[in-house]
């Protein structure tokens, strides 16, 4: 087995340059790569384009990278919950490309799967369709959307092994497995790292072929945005 292990988050992100394209897993604050975000904050880089479903909150997740002005452009589906994001956007400091969530997911999946483009019904008749080729199939209109690929994808899993195989937990899976496939280099941080052979191959969500670097993260905060309990 090829050993993909790196020491920690700092080593994993040490060569990420300014002005590159990053994908980051997570939905809201669930399943975000907390350790790598902290390590990126210590780096003196800027001009990043980040593909992520959301943009974190003001003081956590990708919101921290925004606050430090490391981000040039966000490619996301929903960016509420972040006042600093809204301020930078309205003042023109930050570019944003808002994409329907399913289109975003499929573009990432396509990028990892070698499919350069596909047709989807989402966004027909809306401003999302502007400038895009549309075509009719079986009497319904569809838009042509292209793949998304990144220089680095950074994902967070529950368990992983030294060969890079990953298992996710709950809805922390979200964009992580597809983003793992669409980065030239995929960095995976996991809550529990075990030797290759210790995970059941029947239960692997992301095969290690997609993962280039893996490490066991620490001190996961797992902040909750909407703590809701039953009465």
């Amino acid at each position: 087995m090829i050993n993909k292990t790196v020491k920690n988050a700092r080593e994993a992100v040490a060569d990420i340059p300014s002005n590159c394209m990053l994908m980051m897993g997570g939905f809201g604050l669930t399943g975000i790569p907390e350790n790598c975000i902290s390590a990126l904050l210590e780096r003196d880089i800027s001009g990043l384009t980040i593909v992520s479903n959301n943009a974190g909150v003001d003081d956590f997740g990708i919101g921290l990278l925004l606050k430090k002005r490391m981000v040039k452009k966000m490619i996301s589906s929903y960016v509420g919950e972040n006042a600093e994001f809204e301020r930078q956007l309205l003042s023109g400091e930050l570019e944003v490309d808002l994409i329907p969530q399913g289109t975003l997911a499929e573009r990432v999946r396509a990028g990892g799967a070698g499919i350069p483009a596909f047709f989807t019904p989402a966004g027909v008749g809306t401003e999302v369709a502007e400038g895009k080729e549309s075509r009719e199939f079986d009497g319904k209109m569809y838009l042509l959307e292209s793949w998304l690929k990144a220089d680095f994808s950074i994902v967070k899993a529950w368990k992983g092994d030294t060969a890079g195989n990953l298992i996710f937990k709950g809805t922390a899976r979200n964009f992580n497995p597809i983003m793992a496939t669409a980065g030239k280099i995929c960095i995976a941080e996991v809550e529990e790292l075990v030797p290759a052979g210790d995970l059941n191959p029947n239960e692997i969500h992301t095969p290690g072929i997609y993962v280039q670097r893996i490490f066991q993260g620490e001190n996961y905060e797992k902040r909750i945005e909407q703590r809701t309990v039953s009465q």
């Binding site: 929903y78 809204e86 808002l98 969530q101 989402a122 999302v128």
Partner: peptide, 10 residues
Amino acid sequence: MVKGMGGAMD
């Protein structure tokens, strides 16, 4: 308001 469409368009 510039929050985004999330999954609504899909």
